[in-house]
Design a binder for these strands. Structure first.
Lengths: 118, 118
DNA sequence: TCTACATTTCGAGAAGTATAGAATCATATA
DNA sequence: TATATGATTCTATACTTCTCGAAATGTAGA
């Protein structure tokens, strides 16, 4: 059962996703992509919007992608990046599942201020 | 309006909180404290449970506290740490507020698997 | 095939984070 | 006041991540 393959346990995945978001540029990019919706944005436009050189942005996008928070798709010469909603859902579910263990009361107000609750 | 004081803008706070949680030991400790409820746990017990030297754990607890994710209170010689539910709420609200901008549909299933939704 | 263009990968120095032993601080009790 | 104990701060070293120019890769059109 040995393997050099990346593990998929929820804790490690959560640490990786949290680490990917724990960076000013990457958090901004992620939010940008979430706002952009299913069509996403092309790599160059993202780099330009964030005012960061393409090679630096490519590095950050790779980190977000490996963490399961964004997806990419090539369309001829352009590469579209979009938010990976399922990855986001997994991360939030992990944090929330956690937050409710033993103390359900604390979640009472947790979603109160959100518009998209329903 | 210059100041050496730490800023309070939501993005920086979110990056700091995400960074605090983006570490195996710290994420475990945070979950442990959430499970432990309002009484929290004593610093020494946390270090022991995580199998980490006291000085190392003190460092990690300081990071979590500065990020607004845990609170501490001294009771004679012991220091109790407990989860800061409000800080957790702020972080989740920031991430979710974000996740719904422009794409409310994506949030439809986001809370489906959680017991504490209501 | 040659050129242009979008993007990624490589490489190396700078910056930041992790770890844990030793020293220090705070509190309690004899 | 002296001693013990729980916890933090200091300090130094190891490790990881960040940044971005240069080089390489992939794609399209002349």
């Amino acid at each position: 059962m040995e393997s050099t393959m990346k593990e998929f346990n929820p804790q490690d995945s959560a640490v990786e996703a949290l680490g990917a978001l724990a960076h000013d540029t990457r958090l901004s990019v992620f939010r940008m992509l979430v706002k952009a919706g299913p069509d996403g944005l092309i790599a160059g436009a993202i780099a330009q919007a964030a005012n960061v050189p393409p090679s630096t942005m490519s590095h950050h996008l790779g980190i977000l992608e490996r963490a399961g928070l964004v997806e990419s798709e090539r369309e001829s010469r352009l590469i579209h990046y979009r938010a990976d909603y399922e990855g986001m859902r997994r991360l939030l579910a992990f944090l929330m599942e956690d937050c409710c263990q033993g103390v359900p009361e604390m979640c009472a107000d947790l979603f109160g201020e959100l518009d998209c609750k329903a």
